[in-house]
Amino acid sequence: MLAKTNKATALVLAILMIGVLAACGGKSNSEGSSSPSASATASPATASASASSEPSQETQGSAETRIVKDEFGDVEIPAHPQRVVGVYVEDYLKALGVTPVAQWYHPLWGKQDYLNLDVPLFDTTGSIEALVSYNPDLIIVDGGVDKEKYDVYSKVAPTYRLTEDVLQSSAEMLRAVADVLNIPDKAEEVIADYESKVADGKAKLQASVGKEKVAFIRVNVGEKTLALFGVKNRYTGVIYSEFGLEPIQMAKDMTEYQSILSEEVIPELGADHIIFIPSNGSWDTPEYQEDFKLLDSPLWQSVPAVQKGNIYKFERSHWQSGAITANGMKLDDLLGAMAK
């Protein structure tokens, strides 16, 4: 009988000990134990509550990635990038409502002042490692970046290089940038507004200028040379292809983007209107004021545009960009100068 009693007592004590250990284990887990058994034994209600707690949009955006194809192959980029650097494509970022974390500049060319970006500057001629301090999660570059430099950018952050087939169209470049940013619908809104503006502006220019011949010339400071831009120039060709202005024959026949004008061809320009921009700086600098005196020569006095006073001096910043915001500003310049 005593033996049976001892066995019963031992069984009761064993059960009590198991209960105590279970209670201690529950207390440890409730205080934040990272033991795998803690999540494995979680109740259905607890698991459901944990699953419904989603990260913030920024956290979620930085965590998710997707694979896209750029000029050099497949690249893994953030699905919802938050800190973007756009080397040579900041115009498109701004048009899409995205502010880059840094803006490129060149010591000789300066930066794209017309964008009015209030962000730190990144010297494209200096060390690319400087970009690290801006902590970008995505870098977008255009055709000016080759494979060697692309690989260097890629060491800083996932880098997307626009494909060659979109580089000649501001609308297609905008669509490409918007796709990389995962906001394709925004691109279509911007393009629709731009196309409406161009249609209205083109009609006004046609009514005022018609088929009168137009030349576009850049004054190269310090070199005392003048460069005629052809219809294929990716910065200024838009005035012919989209805005409907009629190029002089010399510009129409050009296969290159630009060509230095020799003195002997000046009387052959046949331009009714001439647009001038400086190669850098502004028209206020003494060098440009001196160079522009070239138009006082008898050779230039034979050109119809000079005789009629149809000479337009525009600032270079947006005229030396082929992006969509810049193109809209070019149209504004032309309408202000030519439309009557």
Results as ranks from 00 to 15, higher is better:
residue 107 P to F: 01
residue 49 A to K: 09
residue 71 E to W: 11
residue 38 A to Q: 05
residue 149 K to M: 03
residue 291 D to L: 04
residue 218 R to Q: 13
residue 94 K to D: 00
residue 81 P to T: 11
residue 336 G to R: 01
residue 243 F to K: 01
residue 226 L to K: 00
residue 84 V to S: 06
residue 83 R to D: 11
residue 66 R to D: 07
residue 95 A to H: 05
residue 266 I to F: 12
residue 185 D to F: 07
residue 249 Q to H: 01
residue 218 R to P: 00
residue 324 I to M: 07
residue 110 G to D: 05
residue 109 W to A: 05
residue 23 A to H: 01
residue 27 K to T: 03
residue 74 D to E: 15
residue 5 T to L: 15
residue 263 E to A: 14
residue 180 V to A: 15
residue 323 A to H: 07
residue 272 D to M: 01
residue 318 H to C: 08
residue 37 S to E: 13
residue 5 T to F: 09
residue 63 A to L: 09
residue 158 P to I: 06
residue 232 K to A: 05
residue 119 V to L: 12
residue 242 E to I: 02
residue 82 Q to F: 12
residue 280 N to I: 00
residue 158 P to Q: 07
residue 306 V to R: 02
residue 264 E to V: 01
residue 330 K to V: 09
residue 283 W to S: 08
residue 156 V to M: 04
residue 199 A to H: 08
residue 145 V to N: 00
residue 14 A to Q: 08
residue 173 M to F: 05
residue 98 V to Q: 10
residue 283 W to I: 02
residue 257 Y to S: 11
residue 32 G to E: 07
residue 173 M to S: 14
residue 276 F to K: 07
residue 224 K to C: 00
residue 98 V to D: 06
residue 296 D to F: 00
residue 27 K to W: 10
residue 231 V to T: 15
residue 318 H to V: 05
residue 110 G to I: 02
residue 194 Y to D: 13
residue 189 E to F: 02
residue 183 I to V: 15
residue 29 N to A: 10
residue 152 V to H: 08
residue 32 G to F: 12
residue 272 D to H: 02
residue 114 Y to V: 10
residue 94 K to T: 03
residue 181 L to I: 05
residue 250 M to N: 00
residue 252 K to V: 09
residue 275 I to P: 00
residue 177 V to A: 15
residue 21 L to A: 14
residue 118 D to E: 14
residue 114 Y to T: 09
residue 328 G to L: 10
residue 239 I to F: 00
residue 43 S to T: 15
residue 129 E to K: 10
residue 122 F to Y: 13
residue 128 I to Q: 05
residue 324 I to G: 08
residue 219 V to H: 07
residue 106 H to L: 00
residue 44 P to D: 00
residue 302 S to C: 07
residue 12 V to T: 12
residue 210 G to N: 08
residue 103 Q to Y: 02
residue 199 A to G: 04
residue 323 A to I: 04
residue 334 L to Y: 00
residue 295 L to A: 13
residue 317 S to E: 08
residue 304 P to A: 11
residue 158 P to K: 03
residue 190 V to W: 09
residue 140 I to C: 13
residue 327 N to S: 11
residue 314 F to N: 05
residue 288 Y to Q: 13
residue 287 E to G: 02
residue 90 E to A: 11
residue 311 I to T: 13
residue 165 D to L: 11
residue 192 A to T: 02
residue 143 G to M: 08
residue 294 L to D: 12
residue 10 A to E: 08
residue 78 P to V: 10
residue 283 W to R: 10
